[in-house]
Nucleic acid binder design. Structure first.
Length: 461
DNA sequence: TGAAATGTTGGGGCG
DNA sequence: ACGCCCCAACATTTC
């Protein structure tokens, strides 16, 4: 009888195109385990916990999971002792905490005859394989993107067949982990927007490629339209692999005979942005807490709790900003263009440290991702790699008029603006006082003044 | 994957 | 017919 092997699930909660699962299944009967490790890893935000609950529930309908909680290295050591497992199979992670987990696992497994088998699949390419001519990591997106497009992608593989070990070791129940919010159940609205799990991810990709990719280049910046893929939370938890998306998108473009080339290319470019963020964080682990550009180390951020609170509660008085923050609270996501605008507003109009915004997004986004979150907040703040220059300050009114010209997006999330005419819907304070919506606040800062203050602060740096 | 200020150009009104 | 001015439209520069 072959010894069982541990299959350690991490952010790879799928069965198809799973190299570690395929290798483990060839090696012996499986003991699939998921470890809730909030000691080595950053504790999850609320929205991510909701997602994880449903993703684990979905995966365990097809493959029973042993659920354990604690420090990954200690849990795996304990499980190996309990079960006599001879090897551990897992997908490589690239966040600082995931790297630490792997170092700790390696440290005890090394001399004890337990084989460690680390596989790819989380990214399109491992961070060591995409480098500049000098062999250094890329810090600029465009040449990084060129290098990714030139590298042969790993072809996705179908689901492997496996055998389960019998018996399986005991584990927690999902309910014991209490990942779902209660009192109040602020995630009440999430279920109508999302279907966590591998099947939901596959469905989302198929819908996007069938219905939306052709118009993606044109419509992706219009937040009222359902033009984006909404795959990010599925990608974050590995319910679908970037290789699957890459391959399916190319296949779809080929089948469409050129009609989807522009949209497909833009979409793949967004997938490469995700890859870029992950590579950046891997090579520069301090991206999460230090400005990538050192000159920002002494930037005089203000620490205004009241302003932060108004921003979080969607009471800034700028409709596009408030609509985005309200969409975030209600659905656990926010349209990408609106993310840039609310982030710019927090960092530049309110002068709050980008890490405060990052923390809010971490807690409220179902797609919260350490690499994308840190890299993109730094991008907006101007302190990041290949970042937007600091003086690029979004005007929420102009952005609204350009990308939400009929106000459909702001009215969807701010019903108090329902009866405001298009001409004023992005700037209700321009209405005569008597005609202004009763339950919507005036702007908390004047755009011109806030812009001037941010520019003066930056200049003094 | 900006916005605002400043510069340039060219058509049209007008004396 | 001509010069002058205004100003929209577009381009460039600056923040």
């Amino acid at each position: 009888m072959t010894e069982p092997v541990l299959l350690w699930f991490r952010r790879d909660l799928r069965l198809a195109d799973h190299p570690a699962l395929a290798a483990a299944a060839r090696a012996g009967p499986l003991i699939p385990v998921f470890i809730l490790d909030e000691e080595t890893l950053r504790p999850l935000g609320g929205a991510a916990r909701w997602w994880l609950h449903h993703a684990l529930a979905s995966l365990s309908r097809d493959l029973p999971l042993v659920l354990r909680r604690g420090r990954a290295a200690a849990v795996l050591q304990q499980l190996a002792a309990e079960t006599g497992a001879s090897a551990i199979y897992f997908s490589r992670g690239h966040e600082p905490g995931e790297v630490r987990q792997e170092q700790e696992v390696k440290a005890w497994a090394g001399g004890r005859g337990v084989g460690l088998h680390r596989h790819g699949g989380v990214l399109l390419h491992e961070p060591e394989t995409i480098t500049t001519g000098q062999g250094t990591p890329f810090k600029v997106f465009t040449p990084f993107s060129r290098a990714v497009k030139a590298a042969p992608p790993r072809p996705p593989k179908p689901k492997a067949a496996w055998t389960l070990a019998d018996p399986q070791p005991p584990g927690d129940t999902l309910a014991q982990w209490q990942l779902l919010p209660a009192r109040p159940n602020w995630a009440r609205g999430f279920a109508s927007h999302w279907q966590p799990g591998e099947a939901g991810a596959r469905q989302r990709l198929a819908d996007f490629l069938d219905e939306h990719v052709a118009a993606y280049a044109r419509d992706r910046d219009v937040p009222a339209r359902p033009a984006t893929s909404r795959l990010s939370p599925h990608l974050h938890w590995g319910e679908i692999s970037p290789a699957q998306i890459w391959s399916a998108t190319h296949a779809s473009m080929a089948a469409a005979g050129g009609l989807q080339d522009e949209g497909g290319g833009k979409f793949l470019s967004e997938l490469i942005w995700r890859e870029f963020c992950a590579h950046l964080l891997f090579h520069f682990p301090h991206l999460t807490d230090q400005p990538f550009r050192a000159e920002f180390a002494n930037f005089p951020w203000t620490d205004d709790h009241a302003a932060m609170r108004r921003w979080q509660r969607a009471e800034t008085g700028y409709p596009l900003v408030d609509a985005g923050l309200r969409e975030l609270w209600i659905t656990g996501t926010m349209h990408n263009r609106v993310r840039m605008i609310v982030a710019s507003f927090l960092v530049k109009h309110l002068m709050q440290h980008w890490r405060q915004g990052e923390a809010w997004f971490w807690d409220t986004l179902v797609d919260a991702d350490i690499a994308s979150n840190a890299a993109n907040w730094q991008w907006v703040a101007g302190s990041g790699a290949d970042a937007a220059p600091f003086f690029r300050i979004f005007n929420p009114v102009l952005q609204g008029e350009t990308f939400d010209p009929d106000g459909a997006y702001v009215r969807r999330w701010l019903p108090e603006l329902a009866s405001v005419a298009n001409k004023h819907v992005h700037a209700p304070w321009t209405l005569p006082e008597a005609a202004r919506p009763k339950h919507y606040p005036p702007p908390m800062v004047d755009h011109g003044a806030a812009r001037a203050r941010a520019l003066a602060t930056f200049k003094a740096l």
